[in-house]
Amino acid sequence: MKQKSSEPANLPIVCDADTLRSLIRKKAVRVIDVRKAEDYQAGHIPTAVSLPLARLLSDDKPETVVCLLEEFGIAEKMPVVIYDDTFGALAARVAWTFQYVGHSNTALLETTFKQWKELGLETETKPRTYPKTKHPLMVRQEMYADAAYVEAAQSDQGKLIVDSRERLNFLTEHIPTARNIPYTMLGVDGNILRKAEDLKRMIENRGISPESEIITYCGSVGTLSGLAYYALKLAGYNNVKLYPKSFKEWKSLGKPKDEFKEATYWDLSAE
């Protein structure tokens, strides 16, 4: 990565392990571990702080999230790399939230913690805290969709709703007009996301133009759809929004669903 030594690194959407290790050595990055607190205590990537997803979700108002950034000593331009052990979905939800409140220099680690360890890379058990900083609040409304926005998008030709749950769940019920890009097709062999060109080809196969505005959603809190959000970004689709409250809220609001009842497809599953 070429940069002036004084400027903080500008991270891509996905940060590879080598880049992260070199940033850690230079003390030029804040690493966020979003697994459960006890998993963090048992071992984490060096210098990482612990932010279990549940803690973030317990109150993800933008003002509160900025307080978290400040608590972790994250200044406005500081590179932040986030990882999990759930194929990138939890990390993606946290990354999206950081970027939404205005911390754009946020990336996902390319692997999960399990793979990091399997690669034999260094870990530590020491809990980390950092001196508090100031961080501005700059909400990026263009990243966010609520139920009303999704509802309006249903009849808008230029907007596309993407359901990132697994196929059988999608077939069972989904938001009318939504298309299915299951999270299961986004990652590959040890990488939370496939290569940009592969993702691009898969999404192009669906006839989705790069100009489309895409809103992603999943089952309940925007994790699977968070990963889909970044997959679309990586594939070069710039106008993407996340509906973080997802299908759970949609159903609780009593909004219409599309259901496919003409086949007994669940009986094909060997689970």
């Binding site: 697994e166 196929r167 059988l168 299961t184 097709m185 590959v188 599953s269 689970e271």
Partner: peptide
Amino acid sequence: ASLSEAFSIGS
């Protein structure tokens, strides 16, 4: 196995 997970129903 991988293809069934990625593009089918996991079985």
